[in-house]
Design a binder for these strands. Structure first.
Length: 952
RNA sequence: GCCCAGAUGGUGGAAUUGGUAGACACGAGGGACUUAAAAUCCCUUGACCAUUGCGGUCGUACGGGUUCGAGUCCCGUUCCGGGCACCA
């Protein structure tokens, strides 16, 4: 009997050794180069890990182990994003404290993670909900509060500098309340009266990225717009830096593109518009300054305060009614329904370029939050203005030669401008100059108009960003409390030395009866200013004891700077020490899902840029390279229940009909509609249901009648969906570890396909990886279970196989192309096996090569070969080109990078011979005439490149 | 509507970035060993034609183009996925 590959024993043995020897502990070491690998830390949900979670962890663990073998000092930490809604909702339902369930879930996650053999340094674990951690979240918030963004320096500065400036200018008010309000307009963390996404069902506000298609991302509840006083982060101040930074980092183009869209830079022109017969004026923003001659009306956003100033008495009633209508519409309704609505304000604006009086409308298609909340409408060249003009019968003036605007607007920025002006008297003179754009291209016309507007002080060139400030408060319990108290309604920061302000105990996790957030339930929640401590609410007297903020921070607060904390997780004096931050700098490789593109990945970059301005973070960008791992989806299974019965019909007996109205397939059995019901995938093999298992699963199936097909089987239908507890399609990694071992799981998850691609989990192929490990194992042992490795000289074939493998695996890991490197291993093992290779020269290298992928088996073999140290401390081998020289036939000759003709070469021709033959071939002569050869490149067996240039 | 990424056997996916398409794995079929099963090993496996042998033709969503040579580059079309979306 050959020595068996006993993965259970091996996995357990090495897990224990790694823990005992602290193999993965990492300390700063100035003598070695650092490498920082990081995964997006998980939210510990009650469902535990499924096979999708480890995908990214395995990918980064492979890279971390590889870098370590290359001699880098690798930081590869793990922790938990522990604040979150599910724990809170569970608490509301059961009364259990969220901390209790969260910590229980963390323990379970840890147990599962430990089975997979990660090289995490657990001594650096962080949990965002522990005071020792969130102290620094609160600290950063206070720093933001005490900073403003200096437009000239393009960086954060202490707020004191701004106060000084106001004092110097003489604009510093004496009243404390006015001072506070003035500074609030500049602070990076500020209290703002803003329109927020209010979710009544969740009882909290949500950030823009937490709202998807007008409903909450979590739970899918309706969201409405509401004006509320909220803490905000002035993320928009960093718009340009967030945009510029994208050019310096190695992220996928699609993620960068998404962020660029989200930041939404647009360069345009602001123009001042005077309201006729009034002293009111307003500013419009346009990116199409070239179309000023085509303006036929103006539009204000309904929420704009200008509406009130502009509306004439006779239109007042109509406008008020319209505003009421708009307010009654939810975000969702506004998004889906694009019918044209609006109302005339009664006033007219004067186009400064043409002198024309144009009506001013109020319409919901103009957004208050973007630009100035007012636009000039050019129906000929903007589809929204066009629809509006058609609806209200307003004139349409085409401005581009050849553009047909009888059916739709011409929005393209291409063409030659006309009608600008229609006649010379239609262009107002300023300082003797009037604007004429006729005959120019649109691009030229934009530039010319900008110049004109600026020169005659009619407006200014302006860059606008779509990126909004982040709303930073939530009406929840399970989050970081704000280190803020209120003195006569003016917010005050609790002194830094008193941080952290710990989350108080409450008896109920719901909002209070008076509608206060859950923290309103906390009894010991008032600030004693003199004694600097938290005291009972009853003591509030507004003289020395004041109420503390009841809001908590949102989920992204704790996850924005966690990568810095890993550098120095136990530090009580600073977020991160100068020494640790200087050594680790920033994350070299970040792995996580692309769904965070407009959330965490923006907030984190903002947060880091702020800390960089403070000198705390040492790099302007937190994550140098980003890999987005795809999702592993599950195969959901459905059984079909005939409506209003307890009968379940096999899928292949159903009749399928497409319903146009519902846009999906409906199923019928003998005329009765059948509804799909989830069945747990553990009860299904292939697409055949184990009816008895299902009966025992839940009561709804126990007494069900199952109508089987002709083969006596019940067939389910299947769909690929996101893996989720509620879809009963979750595959758990523990079972795989139990049946195949951690190394097989690691290999298989990587072998499934490119990391960045989403793919359904299919256990079918796992045997291939398991077989490979068994073959790999059996390279080392004979029938009696003795090590077969000897000191024999490796053959040329052995060396070729080995060096081919080293080359391939090294290149593949660098490109995160792990699936192909595993294929290369399979080929190499087959080759060595048929070569009957026993040479230590070759076989002692393989464990090092496989160590990143399959660390347990690597350690076991490394030890068997007589090494006393961990394979983690071995050295990654280099390949030698000399073993890899190929000798095959053919292909072509190429001149100047452009191939001209094909010819064949003998199999064993050397590069020099190939060049010689190519240049002397008859076909070559015509290309070489009058030319001299600059350079030749010959790839044996493939192609000869000859770069030529003319003589002289 | 705008932007991004993609389409290769029965399946997951390779292809040195313009150089033998289908590596590797799964599945399927055949065989060996075995009383039997499991495990293991060997052969076949893109399609079609020829199979006693060599072999031949077609083939990377579709239609064109560039090139000695195209899965890869260019133009057009179709389809699927992702992001943004009254952003002026």
């Amino acid at each position: 009997m050959a020595k068996e590959y006993n993965f259970r024993e091996i996995d357990q043995k090495w897990h224990q050794k790694w823990v005992a020897n602290k193999t993965y502990k990492v300390v700063e070491d100035e003598s070695r180069k650092k490498f920082y690998v990081l995964n997006m830390f998980p939210y510990p949900s009650g469902a535990g890990l499924h096979v999708g979670h480890p995908l990214g962890y395995i990918a980064s663990d492979i890279y971390a182990r590889y870098k370590r073998l290359q001699g880098y000092n690798v930081l590869n930490p793990m922790g938990y994003d522990a604040y979150g809604l599910p724990a809170e909702q569970y608490a509301i339902k059961t009364g259990q404290h969220p901390e209790k369930t969260t910590f229980a879930n963390i323990d379970r996650y840890r147990e599962q993670l430990d089975k997979i053999g990660f090289s995490f340094d657990w001594d650096r674990e962080v949990r965002t909900c522990t005071p020792n951690y969130y102290k620094w979240t609160q600290w950063a918030f206070q720093k933001m509060y005490n900073s403003y963004f200096d437009e000239e320096l393009q960086k954060a500065q202490p707020i004191e500098k701004l106060i000084e400036k106001f004092k110097k200018e003489g604009t510093w008010p004496s009243d404390e309340k006015e001072q506070s309000e003035l500074l609030m307009q500049y602070r990076l963390a500020y209290l703002g009266e803003t329109m927020v996404n209010w979710c009544p069902a969740l009882g909290t506000v949500l950030a823009n990225d937490e709202v998807v298609n007008g409903v909450s991302e979590r739970g899918g509840y309706p969201v409405e717009q509401k004006k509320m006083r909220q803490w905000c982060l002035r993320v928009s101040a960093y718009s340009q830096r967030l945009l510029d930074g994208l050019e310096t980092i190695q992220w996928s183009e699609s993620i960068k593109e998404t962020q660029k869209n989200w930041i939404g830079r647009s360069e345009g022109t602001e123009v001042e518009i005077k309201v006729a017969d009034s002293d009111v004026d307003f500013t419009i923003f346009t990116t199409r300054a070239d179309t000023m001659f085509g303006v036929t009306f103006f539009v204000l956003a309904p929420e704009s305060e200008l509406v009130d100033k502009v509306t004439t008495p006779d239109q007042r009633a109509a406008v008020d009614e319209y505003i009421k209508y708009v307010k009654g519409r939810t975000e969702r309704e506004r998004m889906i329904d694009h019918t044209v609505t609006g109302v005339f304000s009664g006033a007219y604006g004067i186009n400064p370029i043409t002198g024309d009086k144009c009506p001013i409308y109020v319409a919901e298609y103009v957004l208050a939050g973007y630009g100035t909340g007012a636009i000039m409408a050019v129906p000929a060249h903007d589809s929204r203005d066009y629809a509006f003009a058609k609806h209200f019968n307003l004139p349409i003036i085409p401005l581009v030669e050849g553009a047909d605007v009888s059916e739709e607007s011409y929005d393209a920025k291409e063409g030659i401008v006309m009608n600008s002006p229609v006649s010379p008297d239609k262009s107002v003179k300023y300082d003797g100059e009037s604007l004429n754009l006729n005959g120019k291209t649109i691009k030229e016309a934009i530039a010319e108009t900008k110049r004109f507007v600026k020169a005659h002080n009619l407006g200014r060139v302006k860059v606008n960003y779509r990126l909004r400030d982040a709303i930073f408060s939530r009406q929840r319990y399970w989050g970081e409390p704000f280190p803020v108290y209120y003195k006569n309604g003016i917010p005050q920061m609790i002194p830094e030395e008193c941080l952290p302000i710990e989350l108080p105990q409450v008896d109920k996790f719901l909002p209070t009866e008076t509608g206060e957030p859950p923290l309103g339930n906390a009894q010991i929640w008032a600030w004693d200013e003199q004694n600097k401590k938290i005291v009972d609410k009853k003591l509030i007297d507004e003289k020395t004891v004041f109420p503390i903020e009841l809001y908590t921070m949102p989920g992204f607060a704790g996850s924005s700077a966690y990568y810095l904390r890993y550098m120095d997780p136990l530090n009580t004096e600073a977020l991160v020490s100068e020494k640790a931050a200087s050594y680790w700098q920033n994350v070299d490789l970040y792995v996580g899902g692309s769904e965070h593109a407009t959330g965490h990945l923006i907030y984190s970059r903002f947060w880091n840029k702020f800390l960089f301005d403070l000198g705390v973070s040492k790099k302007d960008e937190p994550f140098q390279k980003l890999i987005n791992q795809g999702m592993i989806q599950g195969w959901s299974s459905f059984v079909y229940r005939l409506r209003n019965t307890n009968k379940f019909v096999s899928f292949d007996l159903l009749e399928e009909k497409y319903d146009d109205a519902k846009k999906k397939n409906l199923y019928y059995y003998q005329g009765t509609e059948a509804d799909p019901v989830y069945a747990d995938i553990s009860m299904v093999s292939g697409n055949v249901l184990d009816v008895e298992k299902l009966r025992q699963w839940t009561p709804e199936f126990r007494d069900g009648e199952f109508i089987l097909n002709n083969n006596g089987q019940y067939i389910v239908s299947q769909a690929i969906e996101k893996m989720s507890k509620s879809k009963y399609n979750v595959v758990n990694p523990d079972d795989i570890c139990e049946n195949y071992g951690a190394d097989t799981l690691r290999l298989y998850e990587m072998f499934l396909g490119p990391i960045e691609q989403s793919k359904p989990w299919d256990v079918a192929g796992i045997d291939g990886c398991f077989r490979f490990l068994k073959k790999f194992w059996s390279l080392y042992w004979d029938k009696e279970g003795n090590l077969t490795v000897d000191d024999s000289e490796a053959t040329a074939d052995n060396m070729k196989t080995l060096h081919k493998l080293i080359k391939k695996v090294t290149a593949d890991i660098e490109e995160f192309s792990y699936n192909t490197s595993i294929s290369a291993f399979m080929v190499a093992v087959n080759e060595l096996s048929s070569q009957k290779c026993r040479s230590k020269q070759v076989l002692s290298v393989l464990p090092v090569l496989i160590a990143p992928f399959a660390p347990h088996i690597a350690e076991e073999l490394w030890e068997a070969l007589g090494n006393s140290t961990s394979v983690c401390d071995a050295q990654w081998p280099a390949f030698d080109e000399k073993y890899l020289i190929e000798s095959t036939v053919k292909l072509g000759v190429q001149f100047n990078g452009k191939v001209r003709f094909a010819m064949e070469f003998p199999a064993d021709a050397t590069p020099d011979q190939m060049v010689q033959m190519a240049t002397s071939a008859p076909d070559a002569q015509k290309h070489l005439e009058g030319m001299q050869i600059v350079k030749t490149i010959a790839i044996p067996g493939r192609i000869v490149n000859i770069v030529v240039k003319p003589n002289n």
